[in-house]
Structures are given as C-alpha cells and as structure tokens.
Amino acid sequence: MSKTFWGGFVILSAVMLLPTMAEAQPILLQRCSADSLDVTKAAARIEWARKCGLLKNVGSPSFGFDTGIPASNGGNLVDYQETDPVRNPLGEGSFSGPNYNFEINYSYINTLYLSGGTTQSLDTWGYNKWTRDATRKRARPLYPTFGTTADLSDASNHQLWPHPTDTNDCGLYSSATGTVSSMSSTYYVNGYCEASCYTPDQEILFEGGYVSILDALNARREDLITLSDDSTLDNVKMKKNSTYGYTVETRDTKHNIYVITTESGGQLRVTDEHPVINGEGRMVKARTLKVGHELVKADGSRDTIVSIEKTEHFGKVYNVRPVSEGLVSNVLVAQGYLVGSSRFQNDDVGYMNRVILYRGVPAHSIP
C-alpha cells in the first residue's frame, strides 16, 4: 500500500491513470469525456462506489480492519478491503482501483478530499466512514470510470456506466442510459476522471503563439509552452514542454466563470476554481482574487486587477496537462497570464495558496 505520513496526515500521490501502458492514456481521456460529470455528480459517483463496494463486496461491518492510523476524533481508522489483491490483483468486480489497494474508505477519502485530519463515524449501514473538513474537499473530485477488462489498451475493453438515476443499482451498463439488457457481469475500475476548466475561446500558449484550447484539442497540439523548472518570480523563463493530454466534457453543463480584467486591458476567463498565480507568486483559486490584487504576466511583470465579473457559461469546458510533474513546469500561460494546470487542483499535498514562484529562497522553506 503506497501510503506515507506527513504531520499525522495520510498522503497519496494524485491518481489519474491506472493503466501501465502509455498508449492507454489518451483512451482514458476519451473515456472521461464520454463519462463527464460536474462536481456534484462526481461526488455522487464516489458515494455510490463506496456504498456498492461495501454492500456488494464486503457484506458486513464486522469485516473491517484496524489501519493503525489515528482518527482525529479518537481511536484508529477502520477500513474495508473489497477484494483480495493476491487472488484478484486486477480487481474484477470492485468499485475501487488497485492504486488504492481496493480499500474502500481509503479510496473514498482520497478521491473526494485533499489531505487533512480524518474523522470517522458510522454510516447508515453500520460501516465506519471517513471524512474531513469541508474546506479540504477537492475542487475537482476524482471519480471512477469503468470498463469490461482491466487493460484500457485492450481492443475488447468496452466502457461501462452506472445507472444514471438509480443509486441503489450497483450494476454497470454498456450505455449511459442504464439499459437493463446491456448490463455487464464483468467490470473493472479503469481510472479516475476529473472535470475541466477553460471555456473554448480561452487561448493557451503553444510553440509559435497562442491557440484557443478548442483549436489545440482538435489539432492535438503537443508543443505546449510552460515555465522552466528554474523560473523564479524575478526571472520567468519559458520552455517547450509536451502535452500529456486534453480533457473535454461531452455534455453541456453550467459553469461559474470569472472574467478578470486587468489594468493593462488584458482579460482572463476561467472557472471559479481554476488555479492562478497571483502577484506574490502564490497559486490561488480564481474565486479568491479581488480587485486590487495582481496577476503575473508571461514576462514576469505584475498587472493589477481592475474588475472581476462573475458570469455563467453553459456548454463544455476544456483542459490541458503537460507531461512534466514539477510544480513550476506545470505553470502554463493563458491569455498572457500565468495559471496552473489541472495537476494543482487535485494535488494531494495541497499546493493551492502555496508560494510556487519564489525569489532565491529554497521552495521547501516557503509556506
């Protein structure tokens, strides 16, 4: 089990992809597009997976085990393993993935929350349920998506969906409408999906200039430009990166959008939860910005915010993620301003509101 401890908190590296083969990654992105959920529905999917894993695969609250991890409200955290990873290493018939060792509460807490103190209480069915403070909820929960085989690169792997309305139905279906005749008796967690952030007209910096996120997606642009790893707030440098993948929602839904206008006349349009670099070099959510705060331009100069308009976008939103895993090299340029990739939104260590671009001070010494 890949758990480590820091300050008494359970930390798990962000889980986005389960397949081991690189060619399976774009397939998962397509699957997530076809299985696109907003934040509310994503949280409901996570709750559904926990309930089905417990009631269908565990069967009794007495089958829990002591993790040895202290709960914030006393005692030790109790978890439930829904399948034997030795006898069933691929997790056939499970609702949590192998990256979570098929442990139900462990999977639940890390897909719905960022790190933090964990409390537990009994749920409706008498099982121990873990939770964290509401302020630690992920802006973009990681919800499971399913297939008929464990290997996404397998041509015989067909996508599966839970029933769209009946949360008491633990079956998986070959259509999103939940047609009973298409129920599959064999299913696996194929990966975890997250929601997207950019409206289609938002321009992102690629080699050669700015390209709208929709045009970049359609052209499968791979020449993404990000900050170089040695960039600081006083010395911003760019590098050619590689595109890890794009996400796009299949369904049109309503999104809260912040239209941020600056003193220079520039404008940034992002969802309210999108990570943005402010004038202090901190990564913050767009909704925390106020008039008088500063954004950081691609050349490192500051640009004061003069207005923030809260509006709604009904339609699809998009995202792009670089291959690199470094924090600084996950800073992109959108409409001329430094913003974070999706890696920041779902990083388990919680880098939001941390200093990302610093001035000659070791990063580990900055809160």
Score class of each variant (00 low, 15 high):
Thr135Leu: 10
Ser153Met: 06
Thr131Ala: 11
Asp166Lys: 14
Met1Cys: 09
Gly266Phe: 05
Thr4Leu: 10
Val39Ser: 14
Val328Trp: 13
Thr40Leu: 15
Thr67Phe: 11
Asn110Trp: 04
Asn105Cys: 07
Lys51Gln: 11
Gly326Asp: 15
Asn128Tyr: 15
Leu152Thr: 13
Ala139Val: 05
Ile277Trp: 13
Thr226Leu: 01
Gly360Asn: 15
Ser185Arg: 11
Asp38Cys: 05
Ser181Val: 06
Trp48Pro: 02
Asp299Phe: 09
Asp35His: 15
Ala14Cys: 07
Phe146Leu: 06
Asp299Ser: 10
Asp215Pro: 02
Gly59His: 12
Ser341Gly: 15
Leu214Pro: 00
Leu77His: 05
Gly116Tyr: 01
Ser365Leu: 14
Ser231Lys: 09
Glu309Val: 14
Asn319His: 04
Gly68Ala: 08
Val333Ser: 03
Asp230Asn: 14
Ala34Met: 14
Thr177Glu: 14
Ala216Asn: 10
Pro141Phe: 06
Leu217Gln: 05
Thr177Lys: 06
Gly178Thr: 08
Pro200Ile: 06
Tyr246Ser: 09
Phe95Asp: 06
Ser181Glu: 09
Glu103Ile: 12
Thr199Tyr: 07
Val349Gln: 02
Gly93Asn: 08
Tyr246Pro: 09
Pro362Phe: 01
Cys170Val: 10
Asn330Cys: 10
Asn168Ala: 15
Pro19Gly: 11
Arg221His: 02
Lys3Gly: 08
Glu222Lys: 12
Val355Phe: 15
Gly300Lys: 04
Asp230Met: 01
Ser121Cys: 00
Gly279Ser: 04
Ile109Asn: 04
Glu82Gly: 13
Asn353Gly: 03
Thr149Leu: 02
Trp125Phe: 15
Lys254Gly: 05
Trp125Ser: 14
Pro275Trp: 14
Val306Ala: 04
Gly97Trp: 06
Leu122His: 00
Ser212Asp: 12
Thr67Trp: 10
Ser121Trp: 05
Ala298Tyr: 09
Phe206Ile: 09
Thr20Met: 09
Ala139Gln: 03
Asn101Pro: 00
Gln202Trp: 01
Thr40Lys: 15
Leu332Asp: 04
Ser175Trp: 09
Ser264Leu: 08
Gly191Lys: 07
Met283Ile: 13
Leu217Val: 02
Asp79Leu: 06
Ser107Pro: 01
Thr199His: 01
Gln159Arg: 00
Ile27Phe: 11
Arg140Met: 08
Arg31His: 11
Val10Phe: 05
Tyr113Met: 02
Gly64Val: 05
Ala286Asn: 02
Val39Thr: 15
Pro367Met: 05
Lys129Ala: 11
Gly350Tyr: 01
Gly53Arg: 02
Lys290Tyr: 00
Val291Asn: 04
Val15Ala: 03
Glu103Asn: 10
Gln202Leu: 12
Arg132His: 04
Arg251Gln: 11
Ser231Asp: 08
Asp272Glu: 13
Ser121Glu: 12
Lys310Tyr: 06
Arg140Thr: 14
Ser242Lys: 14
Tyr173Cys: 03
Ile277Gln: 13
His313Ala: 02
Arg132Leu: 15
Gly97Thr: 06
Ser196Ile: 03
Ala219Phe: 00
Gln202Asn: 05
Val331Leu: 13
Val236Trp: 03
Tyr244Asp: 10
